[in-house]
């Protein structure tokens, strides 16, 4: 089946996914918290949670770019962003507002919530995936990208 998708990276995807899931499991079993990036960002910014939670959130959020940078030393990867600056700003606003209103993003709902069999997370993941599919299809219809 994958022969039809020569640009897919199933092994890297699975291994990277295992790392993400293990990191989320450490947060859950070690610190009793959901490794949801939008929620942790809001805690870091003082928009939700307690001061004690804020320190943990800050350390996790600092860890993200540190871990990515360390991994990039060992395995350089291509990073391609096709969005224009206006799209980046509009997208950032929508992602920031939407994840707070919807109580989570790909990590909180998609990874942590689905594995918890949370009905809210199944609904949220279905809707944000659906909205993203539609948005990309509309961009494709609107012009080359």
């Amino acid at each position: 089946m994958l022969a039809n998708f020569p640009h897919a990276a199933p092994i890297e995807g699975l291994v990277g996914g295992l790392m993400i899931g293990t990191a989320a499991a450490i947060m859950l079993l070690g610190l009793g918290r959901i490794a949801g990036i939008s929620g942790l960002m809001a805690q870091l910014l003082g928009m939700s949670g307690t001061p004690r939670a804020r320190h943990v959130a800050a350390m996790f959020i600092i860890g993200l770019p540190v871990g990515a940078a360390l991994m990039a030393l060992g395995a350089p990867v291509a990073l391609e962003m096709s969005a224009t600056p206006a799209m980046m700003v509009a997208g950032g606003l929508l992602v920031g507002f939407g994840t707070r209103l919807g109580s989570g993003c790909t990590s909180g709902h998609g990874v942590c919530g689905l594995s918890r069999l949370s009905a809210r997370s199944f609904v949220a993941t279905g809707l944000f995936m659906g909205a993203a599919f539609v948005t990309v299809a509309m961009l494709r219809a609107a012009g080359p990208f």
Binding site: R100, G102, A131, F133
Partner: peptide, 10 residues
């Protein structure tokens, strides 16, 4: 919220 997030993600 999920739909708004999905639009920005897409």
């Amino acid at each position: 919220g999920a739909i708004i997030f999905g639009a920005g993600w897409g």
